[in-house]
């Protein structure tokens, strides 16, 4: 069983909502990532999503755009991201996923990328500009390297789109919580719970909610409904508030998020 499947099986047995922490590789400094992965894993993250920065992140809001630009200026490459993942893997057994846009993967070579990611101890890939219909080549490469390839559903998805994502995905289904780009938001969209129910009818894979997730109340609202949540921009915002102590910020932010909501 893959690390991702094993993790969600364990979470399911415990009746717990999984927490996936997103970190931009090379942010806030080129060599920061392995220690931040360790800090996140020790502070309640059940899996870590590692964003390989891309020059044109068109599904991302300001926070991830800024982190990506800073990381690219700092010298992050796909090769460095693989090294960071490999170093992180030596520190923790939690599932690691790469999130990046298609072009850096294409430039590296689909098969070469999947092989190198697996060798680095990465368990899954998330590619926001790759819909199921365009995914044949990457799916083949991912299967050959036994790495999961996650697909998205969105509030705007048609039933056909939901079915296509559920058929194409391995690992989990990434359920986009808002009609929009990434970025912390105060409220959850009321359409989210019905969307999760629809997706549930089409798949046995875990359903993980991301985009806008930033508060204890969001996690509370999704307990028993989704299988996991991804916290990305809110975590990067926390790092940005004290970039001299990113590991401390990651620990504080994730611990607070895991604390039961007041009232």
């Amino acid at each position: 069983m893959s690390r991702i499947a094993a993790t969600f099986a364990r979470l399911g047995a415990q009746g717990r909502l999984g927490l996936i922490a997103y970190l931009t590789v090379g942010y806030p400094r080129l060599d920061a990532t392995p220690a931040l992965v360790e800090a996140a894993a020790e502070s309640g993250a059940d899996a870590i999503e590692l964003g390989i920065p891309f020059s044109d992140p068109l599904a991302d809001g300001r926070t991830i755009q800024a982190a990506s630009q800073q990381a690219l200026k700092g010298g992050v490459t796909v090769g460095r991201a693989l090294e960071a993942a490999s170093a992180a893997r030596k520190k923790t057994e939690v599932p690691l996923l790469f999130m990046t846009y298609l072009n850096p993967i294409l430039a590296f070579g689909l098969e070469r990328f999947c092989r190198a990611a697996t060798e680095a101890g990465v368990d899954g890939l998330i590619v926001p500009d790759l819909p199921p219909a365009e995914s044949v080549d990457l799916r083949r490469a991912a299967d050959a390297s036994h790495i999961d390839l996650v697909f998205f559903v969105a509030p705007t998805s048609s039933e056909t789109g939901i079915v296509a994502a559920c058929r194409a995905a391995t690992g989990f289904i990434y359920c986009i919580a808002v009609t929009g780009v990434t970025g912390a938001r105060p409220e959850l969209d009321p359409a989210l719970l019905p969307l999760i129910e629809t997706v549930r009818r089409h798949t046995n894979l875990p359903i993980v909610v991301g985009f806008g997730i930033s508060r204890v109340e969001h996690l509370k609202a999704l307990e028993g409904k989704a299988d996991g949540v991804i916290v990305a921009s809110a975590l990067l915002d926390a790092i940005a508030r004290a970039p001299e102590d990113p590991a401390g910020q990651v620990r504080r932010f994730l611990s607070d998020l895991r604390r039961p909501a007041a009232g």
Partner: peptide, 22 residues
């Protein structure tokens, strides 16, 4: 029908836009 000119073209877009493009 999928917008391919040989190998070129296609629809490499976030899922949120898929229904709109259809």
């Amino acid at each position: 029908t999928r917008g391919r000119y040989g190998n070129y073209g296609g629809q490499y877009i976030p899922e949120t836009l898929m229904a709109a493009v259809d």
